[in-house]
């Protein structure tokens, strides 16, 4: 158990904004750029922005989640960390689960904070902002789980990073439908379903990711 906490601490030191694997602020800046560019593109129609703003924030969050994929698993696999963990009896599943947690902490809460200025840029009212924030809280763990899973699945492939981005989008569609859909229906059930999908993804990610990492060793 203490070994896993050590691994989680290392993961956080790498992935948190300002962390040592670099590029950790990129998703946040990307997210804010989309929220900033959108009003320029569609014009200063406050009613239109307020109506579509919540959806834009969700799309921006999803796209921002794609950016760190190539840094999640590949460097540790290349440097032999997973082999050394396996020799010490630390399963790939446990390591992947720690990484989902670390990845979520490093991009979920920062994204929720960045959603505040984004909501101001898009002119969202308080009620919509509340639903967006709750939806992100329920949905970002799922996005983190998909991200780690996809990173593990594509790690052995050439041009895996580009493929990872493409693979992530369809898997994230259910989260987007219910998370952004909660804005139209006024919250409640949509957020609950987003949370349910997130839980399934978080439960699935360690097993899918662990098996994918083991598969890179064979054959």
């Amino acid at each position: 158990m203490s070994a896993l906490l050590t691994i989680l601490r290392r993961d956080l030191a790498m992935l948190l904004p300002g962390g040592r694997r670099g590029g950790t602020l990129l998703p946040l800046l990307f997210f804010l750029s989309v929220a900033m560019l959108f009003p320029f593109a569609v014009g200063p129609d406050a009613a239109l922005l307020a109506r579509t703003g919540g959806g834009i924030i969700w799309v921006a969050a999803l796209l921002a989640a794609i950016l760190p994929l190539d840094r999640l698993i590949a460097p540790d696999l290349d440097q032999g960390f997973f082999d050394q963990w396996a020799l010490r009896g630390i399963s790939e599943e446990a390591v992947v689960f720690m990484r989902v947690i670390a990845h979520w902490i490093s991009f979920g809460p920062p994204l929720m904070i960045a959603a505040l200025p984004a909501a101001a840029l898009l002119g969202l009212d308080g009620a919509s902002l509340r639903i967006v924030e709750l939806g992100l809280l329920a949905g970002t763990p799922g996005l983190a789980a998909i991200g780690v899973m996809i990173a593990a699945l594509t790690v052995g492939l050439r041009s895996g990073a580009a493929l990872a981005g493409l693979l992530m989008i369809p898997l994230a569609v259910p989260l987007l439908i219910f998370g952004a859909g909660a804005l139209a229906t006024g919250g409640g059930s949509g957020i609950a379903l987003t949370g349910a999908i997130s839980l399934i993804l978080v439960a699935m990610a360690p097993f899918a990711g662990g098996a994918a990492i083991r598969a890179t060793r064979g054959g």
């Binding site: 960390f81 082999d83 020799l87």
Partner: peptide, 16 residues
């Protein structure tokens, strides 16, 4: 008995 493996990957963080 436990296995210690030394191969071409040092498994040490490059930036630390």
């Amino acid at each position: 008995g436990a296995i210690g493996l030394l191969d071409e990957h040092p498994a040490l963080d490059e930036n630390l």
